[in-house]
Design a protein around this nucleic acid. Structure first.
Lengths: 351, 351
DNA sequence: ACAAGTTCTGTAATCGATTACATCAATGGT
DNA sequence: ACCATTGATGTAATCGATTACAGAACTTGT
């Protein structure tokens, strides 16, 4: 069977409800009811209509339906472009599965640049979209016009809930970062190199707090930590590695902002002849699959990526269903999940 | 400034064109013209209307516009879920950038399972979407109903163009796989282990051909190749590694279907005490960033991932603009791009 | 000052589906 | 046998924008 031929048989224009009505010899109202409230029709009428629907291959035009109903089944998800795909892919998977269960479809809006973002702002304001999820701390904002101005129900996932005042599903970044430090202190490390992320980033700020308080709790002074700003990407791992190598008195352990950064860091210091974990311990963050396949296997903090996406999407669906925020989430406006330490080969006790 | 307060000031309902008309003291037609054909209005009328638009924060409802105009600015992109995120992320980036330039918005449809796919089929048939891109060889097809039945303009990227008869943008998989073999033969390898992908997959089939012909051209018999079916994921690399280890007489080189598989394969055989490239050479496929950060750095075939997405999206946009396929692409219906060998540390000449 | 032509703006039809209300038929009660 | 009630279906308004056409206002030429 040649598919190209099959497609040519398709009518040039998609069948409308009136085409079905004509074919079945009923009114458009009856067709509409046959599809949305079959019980209200006499069985024989219903069957006649459904037969015509099947014969014509009719699918209701959802644009018209949406205009009339005033609501949409589309959810816009804002994602950072080109950053940490293995992490976001899994969060998106949780989102996608959950939205699908609730009958929503996902529009992915990559944060990219100004003109690009403007399109997303207009999309949100244009009535096409029912709600908004953001997995990015930065939100489209062009010329003082924010994507939030559209007033759509919105939920932040792993992103700063403060700026926007949005309900949020978050990792307990503070605790998770403290776990990194505690793990290293427990192994006897006394001086740490911290390869962090961009200034102003919510996750970075929260983790900073956790690190500081864990240092204190572990009896170390703030000077025990040398910080270097990275970017959550491979590039930051390389420059961070170079910065580490340039130190005259190198700390024995390194905390990385995410796994990709950690992997690039390890690669960089190894090329310079250092051995991990013999010469230094390295711990990552995120728990992407790959962290278990690199050399040495990477100790890290696993985030419940799928669950973060799932719970965030569920929350949005609840809000779209008309529930009040107070009914579906804690007073604080936040649902907080915990990271989990995966101690592997890249961290080791000091001799 | 408290954003939550700002949002509360928003009118409960988005302003309509008639609200603007009232505010400006003109008819709805004039408002519409002020936005779409400003030259046709007396400058003072136009300014009055635009002032009202700005004052109310009016954005045209694109659902109504779409219903009237009969066309949409949404493109549905079908992507495999949970497979090789680093690869697809970059292809998607090329697609997204290109669609954005042309004023389109991307809906990501992950291939997942039956109910999930049914939603995508209905989305395509519902008039919501202008066109279709697929980066997946499998297309949503539930109960004999295919997403292609909607008759949308569609383009395949890196995916089987045969089944669907779609215009396609492809990597020359046959040539690329031949390059893998040629590289290994040039290094003196005479027996190869081939960790391939799922049976029936277009890329797998084409590469198979390239491998066979390159073996022949290199003077090797087909028996020089031992094939093991993987899955383009980490798991396939592990099971493939175990299969390799179980061989009594192991080939000196291994060809992998993609980089993630190769990385997991390397990890597996190393845990068993084998050294790469001392004991065996391994070559991957795709050229994801990570391939240059693992240990040892991975020889691979780089795909022009961004360009594949870009060219595919451009082609779809041309078709949506009403161009005939013959005007914007070769007679064959295919645009073919070449891979590039990246020879790194995981492959080495036999002694 | 008036006809003819421009220029500008308003009225109303339209896109395709949903649904309140109207209408008509069938049923049951007395 | 007739009225009231229920059930089934049709008619037409509606969602919010665009645009063909109509009509008003304003020029210009004679």
């Amino acid at each position: 069977m040649r598919d190209s031929a099959r497609r040519r048989e398709q009518p040039r224009r998609a069948p409308r409800i009136s085409d079905v009505a004509d074919a079945a010899g009923v009114s458009v109202a009856t067709v509409s009811r046959a599809l949305s409230a079959p019980d209200k029709l006499k069985p024989e009428t219903r069957d006649k209509v459904l037969a015509a629907v099947a014969a014509l291959g009719y699918t209701p035009n959802s644009v018209a339906r949406q205009l009339r109903a005033g609501n949409s089944r589309l959810v816009l998800v804002i994602v950072p472009q080109r950053t940490n795909p293995p992490f976001f892919a899994e969060v998106l998977h949780g989102i996608d599965v959950t939205l699908a269960e609730a009958g929503y479809v996902l529009i992915t809006g990559y944060m990219e640049g100004h003109d690009h973002d403007l399109r997303l702002i207009e999309l949100a304001a244009s009535g096409h979209v029912a709600g908004l999820l953001t997995v990015s701390g930065d939100l489209p904002n062009v010329g003082g016009r924010s994507i939030l101005d559209a007033g759509l129900p919105a939920v932040a996932i792993c992103a700063d809930p403060q700026v926007a005042g949005l309900p949020a599903v978050l990792l307990d970044d503070e605790r998770a970062a403290a776990m990194q430090v505690e793990h290293l202190i427990a192994l006897g490390h006394r001086r740490l190199f911290y390869l962090s992320g961009p200034e102003g980033n919510y996750n970075v700020t929260m983790r900073q707090r956790g690190i500081v308080s864990a240092l204190e709790a572990g009896g170390l002074s703030p000077e025990a930590l040398i910080e270097y700003r990275g970017d959550f990407a491979f590039t930051g791992g390389i420059s961070g590695g170079e910065a580490y190598l340039a130190l005259s008195d190198r700390p024995s352990a390194v905390i990385c902002g995410n796994d990709e950064t950690a992997i690039a860091f390890v690669k960089t210091v190894r090329s310079a002849g250092l051995r991990v974990p013999d010469d230094l311990s390295v711990i990552g963050f995120d728990g992407i699959e790959l962290a278990d396949f690199c050399e040495p296997t990477l100790s890290t903090i696993a985030q419940p990526r799928f669950e973060l996406g799932r719970v965030g999407a569920r929350l949005l669906v609840d809000l779209l269903d008309g529930n009040e925020p107070g009914d579906v989430m804690p007073e604080s406006g936040r649902i907080v999940m915990q990271g989990r330490l995966l101690a592997r080969d890249s961290t080791r006790a000091v001799e």
